[in-house]
């Protein structure tokens, strides 16, 4: 029988060893996160207060000059507006089309599996491929767009090279790619809904539209919120479609914040300006994420 003090000491030693193992096991992950997540954010914040062309020399401290330049430039205002318009239309479109699609594939249809797969497929295709595909469709000279418009005796707009049409073109392509995901999330939401409320309402004589509007929709509101935030964050990161379809043009008609960051930093070799715009992007995303967290903790529960 070992003496109790000896035993406690043993436990302490064992504890220490457990911590050691723990530290060893998480070290790779911590190092990874520090190296690839936190360090770049901090370094970027530092760069945003410097002037540097990234080719030679080293960053020169300029304080808040890059931020002042950004916020006083009408170009940057246009970029923010573009980002908002793009995000807004994509979010609204995804929710409406995604929900409609989910309701549709929630029916007991023939070939339901195939329809579901088809709806989801665009989401997993690479953005560059989707963009190339839509460039063909939108081509006013030999694309599908030409054919469709000619049915109505009109000629196709020059989608990607006309200031007024480039943003709609991007939104359409993005919706096509992303809506399948939204539909699947809604579908899961729909299938998780309790049947009792529907039944009760039906017994009270409510029509299908009323049930959908007064019962299904409110019950789905946590799903809708989730979808909106995820989609919004997605649009802030949109890069591939813009890179392949419009390069942010014509002019800056489709330059969103993320594309702007790339243009400033790498095409204009202006590390400071790009970094400052990235910091703005960072805070917008941070705010959106905080909003999502706050909401998901106090989300409306009907059950």
């Amino acid at each position: 029988m070992p003496d109790p003090i000896e035993r406690r000491r043993g436990r302490r030693r064992r504890n220490r060893r457990e911590y050691g193992v723990f530290a060893l096991l998480i070290l790779p992950n911590i190092a990874m996160v520090l190296t690839f997540e936190y360090w770049p954010v901090l370094y970027n914040a530092y760069l945003s207060m410097t002037r540097w062309n990234m080719i030679s020399g080293s960053p020169v401290w300029v304080g808040l000059k890059n931020y002042i330049n950004l916020f006083t430039s009408s170009q940057f205002h246009q970029v923010l507006l573009n980002t908002l318009v793009f995000g807004g239309f994509v979010v609204i479109g995804s929710v409406l089309i995604g929900l409609a699609l989910a309701v549709l594939i929630n029916q007991k249809l023939h070939l339901r599996g195939i329809v579901r797969t088809a709806a989801f497929a665009p989401y997993v295709i690479s953005g560059a491929a989707v963009a190339t595909l839509w460039l063909f469709i939108f081509d006013p000279n030999y694309g599908l767009s030409r054919v469709v418009f000619s049915w109505f005796g009109a000629s196709s707009p020059h989608w990607t090279t006309d200031s007024a049409w480039a943003m709609p073109a991007l939104i359409i392509a993005y919706l096509w790619k992303g809506t399948g995901f939204v539909a699947i999330v809604y579908l899961a939401g729909l299938q998780g809904l309790p049947e009792e409320y529907d039944e009760a309402a039906r017994i009270d004589g409510a029509g299908r539209w009323t049930i959908f509007r007064r019962i299904t929709l409110p019950l789905l509101s946590p799903v809708t919120f989730f979808v909106m935030v995820i989609t919004m964050i997605g649009t802030f990161q949109a890069y591939d479609l813009i890179a392949v379809m419009t390069n942010g043009g014509p002019g800056i008609a489709t330059t969103t914040l993320s594309w702007f960051v790339y243009e400033r930093a790498f095409k204009a070799s202006d590390a400071g300006g790009g970094a400052a715009a990235a910091v703005v992007l960072f805070f917008i995303l941070l705010a959106l994420t905080a909003l999502q967290n706050a909401y998901s903790q106090r989300k409306v529960h009907y059950q």
């Binding site: 020059h158 090279t161 006309d162 007024a164 480039a166 014509p250 002019g251 800056i252 008609a253």
Partner: peptide
């Protein structure tokens, strides 16, 4: 700039 004037 060229894109802007030739696209609208």
């Amino acid at each position: 700039g060229i894109q802007e004037i030739l696209s609208a």
